[in-house]
Amino acid sequence: MTTTTGGGSAAGSTGTRTSRQTAGGTWSADSATSAGGGGTAVAERHGATDLLTSRGRTSISDAVVRKIAGVAAREVDGVHTLGTGGGRAINSMKARIPGASSSVARGVAVEVGERQAAVDLDVVCDYGVSIVDLSQSIRGNVVSSVEGMTGLEVTEVNIAVDDVYIGEDGEEESRRVE
């Protein structure tokens, strides 16, 4: 699990991706890069296997995990918003179109397998917060929310701190009202 700080938008979070360790081998890496032992092996938790039963399979779509992870990350105090600069600008326009899809999942990328999920987040934090402590809380809340609500095991939560929100910025302030 990594935390990256800085402006590198797509490259760090969603562009290339190292192969992830999966217990069940149910999904594979989506890029050529591979890192030995990329994710910390997570102990088998209760619920992680409840999705695959002898009488059928429960599948959970990416959109579900994106929304849960998005809400869980946003509700942590100290997180100003999610999303990269470009994405936030596009979204502020999209927000004015009636009927456009919700922005809850903005800044969240996920990979969902049959039993496991991995989450990438682009976070804008409030000025003054300790990013180390904030990322620990985001990770904890995302993992416990996603695992609690879906039964998927979350193997990793990668957090890219994309920006810091500093008050007196009129433009940012108007974006905040969505």
Partner: peptide, 11 residues
Amino acid sequence: RTGGGDHATWL
């Protein structure tokens, strides 16, 4: 609150 987001699990 999102279900399951209990801080006791990670702190």
